[in-house]
Write a protein that binds this DNA or RNA. Structure first.
Lengths: 202, 202
DNA sequence: CCCATTACATACCACTTGGTATGTTCTGTC
DNA sequence: GACAGAACATACCAAGTGGTATGTAATGGG
C-alpha cells in the first residue's frame, strides 16, 4: 500500500518552494519561509530532501519542466500545421499573461540566469529543459519545411535557438518594465518573425 | 584641491563590487568578498556608501550604464547609416565575446532579472538604462526609415523593443548553455532579422 | 606647530541562514 | 496490543550576513 499522505506533504513543499523560488530566486529563497507557507517544519523538509540544492533540483525537474511541457512543448509537438501552431502558442502566452505573471517572469529563465554560472547540477538540468524546448521548435520548423508550410532557405536549428532566446528575452524585458502591454507588443514582434519563415504561396 | 586618493578607493570598491555582482548577483554578493579583493575594510566601504543597496545602485549608474554607453549606445547614436551600424554592433559583440563573458552574461540583464521584482529603486535605474537602449535603437530605425535605408512598414518603437529583448535573450540562453558558438549563432539570427528591415532596393 | 576633518581600520553586534540531532506521533504488522 | 519503522516536530548550532561604534593615521589650513 502506498502512502499518499507522505507524497502529499512532499508535493506541498515542492509547490511552496516553487512559489518562493519564483519570487525571490533560489539563493534568496528561505527554507523557513517555504515551510511557513505550508505549516510544516524542517523535520518534514529534510526527511524528503537531503539538502536545499536537492529541493531546488526537484522543483526544476518536477514543477518547472512539467509546466513548460504542458503549456508549450506538448501543444507544439502534435500540431498538423507546426508553424501556425507555433504562432498560436506565442500569441496565446501573450494573451493569457497577467501583471503578476509578467512581473515574476519565466521560472526557467530566472533560474538559468541565477544558477547556471554557480551550480553545475542546476545548469545541466536547466540546460536539458532548454534543449528540449529548442528541439521541439526545431522539429516543428523541420516538419513545416517538409510540408511546404515554411521556406527552406533557413537553418532550423539556428532559427529554433533564436526563437527560444527571443521568447525568453521578451519575458525578461517585460519583467523589468513590469508592463503587460510591452510584453504583448514584444511577443507580437516575435510572432511576426515566425510568420516571415512561412513559404510564399504565389 | 580635489582628493584623488579618496576617489580612487571609491572606484576600487565600485570596480570590485561590479565584478562580484556580475559573478554572483547582487544579493549573493558578499561585502566581505568585495572588500577582500580590494584589500580595504568595512570602514572604507561605509564611508563612501551608506548601505549595500546604495553601493549596488552606484554600480548600476556608474559602471553598468557607462559600459553599455561606450560599447553600444554611442556607436549607434552617431551613425550615418544607422541600420548597417546596428548590424555591425551586433556582429561585433558576437565576434569579440569570449567564454568567460558568455558564461557571466550581461550585467544589465542579470540585475534586471534578479532585482526588478524585489527593489523598486533598482528597477527604476535598470529600467531607465533599458529605455535609453530602446530609444537609441528606435531613433536609429527612425533615421534609417527617413533616409530610405529601412522599409517604412513597421513600428520603430515595437521593433526596437524586440531587438533589445532578443539581444538580451541571446545572451541569456548562451549564458546557460555556456557556449560561445551558440551565442554567435543566435546573434547572427538577430542580425539577420535586422537586415530584413532594410528597404528593398529594386 | 596645532588642530579639525577626512579617510580609513578594527572590533563588535544582532540576525538569519542551511543543516543536524533528538524527540515524538502516527501507522501498519504480526 | 506490543513493536518497528515511517513521518514528522522541536531545539539547537556554527557560520556568514549587513551594519555600527569606536579607534587611528593621514592631510591640509591657520
Amino acid at each position: 500500500m502506498e502512502k499518499p499522505h507522505a507524497d502529499l506533504t512532499r508535493e506541498k513543499i515542492l509547490s511552496s518552494a516553487f512559489c518562493e523560488i519564483h519570487r525571490k530566486g533560489f539563493q534568496a529563497a528561505s527554507l523557513a519561509d517555504i515551510l511557513e507557507a505550508t505549516g510544516l517544519t524542517k523535520g518534514a523538509l529534510y526527511y524528503h530532501f537531503p539538502t536545499k540544492q536537492a529541493l531546488g533540483l526537484a522543483v526544476v525537474d518536477e514543477v518547472v519542466r512539467t509546466r513548460l511541457e504542458e503549456r508549450i512543448f506538448a501543444p507544439v509537438r502534435g500540431a498538423q500545421r507546426p508553424l501556425d501552431r507555433l504562432v498560436e502558442v506565442i500569441e496565446g502566452i501573450a494573451r493569457e499573461s497577467d501583471a503578476q505573471g509578467v512581473a515574476l517572469g519565466c521560472p526557467l529563465n530566472n533560474l538559468m540566469q541565477e544558477m547556471s554560472p554557480l551550480d553545475e547540477a542546476f545548469k545541466e538540468r536547466l540546460s536539458a529543459i532548454l534543449e528540449t524546448w529548442r528541439e521541439v521548435v526545431r522539429s516543428a520548423l523541420a516538419r513545416a519545411q517538409a510540408r511546404g508550410e515554411a521556406r527552406d532557405d533557413f537553418d532550423c536549428g539556428a532559427a529554433a535557438l533564436f526563437i527560444v532566446a527571443a521568447f525568453e528575452g521578451c519575458i525578461g524585458v517585460a519583467k523589468n518594465m513590469q508592463s503587460v502591454e510591452a510584453f504583448r507588443s514584444c511577443m507580437r514582434q516575435l510572432a511576426n518573425f515566425v510568420v516571415t519563415l512561412k513559404a510564399d504561396r504565389s
